[in-house]
Structure formats: C-alpha cells, structure tokens
C-alpha cells in the first residue's frame, strides 16, 4: 500500500488513460506529437485482457494495428525460436498500421497481460482530424519500420 506522505502525489492522480498516454509517448512512434493529441488518440484505443498462454495472434493472421504492453509480458516467436520477450511499455505489430500485411510471428501472453490495441482504423480517423500531426506520425512510423528492417538485416548478416 502506498504511503500518502512519501509517495508522489502527482503520480497518484495518474489515471489509466494518462499511463497509456505516457507509455505511448515514450515510444518513437509518438515523438513530436503533443501530449494533448496523444491523449485524445489514446482515449480511442482498445484495452484487452489476455490469460496466461493465450494466443494474441498467430503467424499469418490479419493484423489490425500496433499493440502496447500495459501489464504482464508477451513472447514473440517464429516457429520454435523466441524472438523477444516484451514487457511494460514495449510495443509490437506496428507493421499493421502501415500495410495490410499478415502477422510475421506468433505472439503469446506469458502471464495475465493487459494490452492496448492502437488500430489502423483509429489512426486513419485521427489523420482525418489532424492531417499535419498525422503526417508527423507516419514519418515516425516509417523511421521505426526502417529501424526494424536495419536490425533484421544486421541479425541476418551476423548469422
């Protein structure tokens, strides 16, 4: 239980929406997007609860958007190889925001996990509201995807 004298009084007023906003703002996707706009967008996102070992998506599934880990952890794997273990504040599946490609790996909840889905539908509707900031977001998204590609190329070169 938190001590009301010593705990951060500002942090105690941190609602779930503010937590989600803060976590997304720490990602490269929301670099340069004002907090008010990020919060507006986060209010439209979708919170889902997954049980331990529940499949979030399978390789080849149709992806609807990017996903942020709000609580718990997620294992990303391709066949039997574990690619990553994602925890609080990590995001994945952002390819689905840019293209209608299928999921390129499996994602499974390792423990009871709460995830925030940022859907392509929400992004497109937000871009209609805020075209200038939408352009900025898309630049961030392409930079993130380029970074992922660069990392994948390096991994292949090392093997």
């Amino acid at each position: 239980m938190s001590n009301i004298f010593w705990s951060n009084i500002f942090k105690s007023g941190d609602s779930e929406l503010q937590t989600i906003t803060r976590l997304w703002q720490q990602t490269p996707l929301f670099e340069g997007i004002p907090q008010r706009q990020t919060e507006f967008l986060c209010a439209k996102m979708h919170l889902r609860l997954f049980k331990t070992d529940e499949v979030i998506f399978n390789l080849g599934d149709q992806g609807a958007g990017a996903i942020l880990v709000l609580e718990g952890s997620v294992r990303i794997k391709a066949s039997t190889t574990e690619l990553a273990l994602l925890e609080l504040g990590d995001f994945f599946g952002e390819i689905a925001l840019a293209a209608t490609e299928r999921r390129t790996a499996d994602a499974i909840a390792v423990s009871p996990t709460r995830l925030v889905f940022f859907l392509k539908q929400d992004l497109e509707e937000w871009i209609e509201h805020e075209p200038r900031l939408g352009g900025r977001f898309l630049m961030n998204l392409s930079a993130t995807l380029a970074q992922r590609l660069y990392q994948a190329n390096e991994l292949i070169a090392q093997q």
Partner: peptide, 20 residues
C-alpha cells in the same frame, strides 16, 4: 467501438480488419 469490444480476443483483430 463498444460493440466491437464484445468480440472475443481470438476474433478481435479479424473483426476490425473486416470492419475497416
């Protein structure tokens, strides 16, 4: 959004892809 939230986890993304 409220209606789509009724979808089970396994069909949530598929439902949104179809809706989109």
């Amino acid at each position: 959004n409220n209606l789509m939230n009724w979808l089970p986890n396994s069909s949530f993304e598929l439902g949104w892809v179809i809706y989109h």
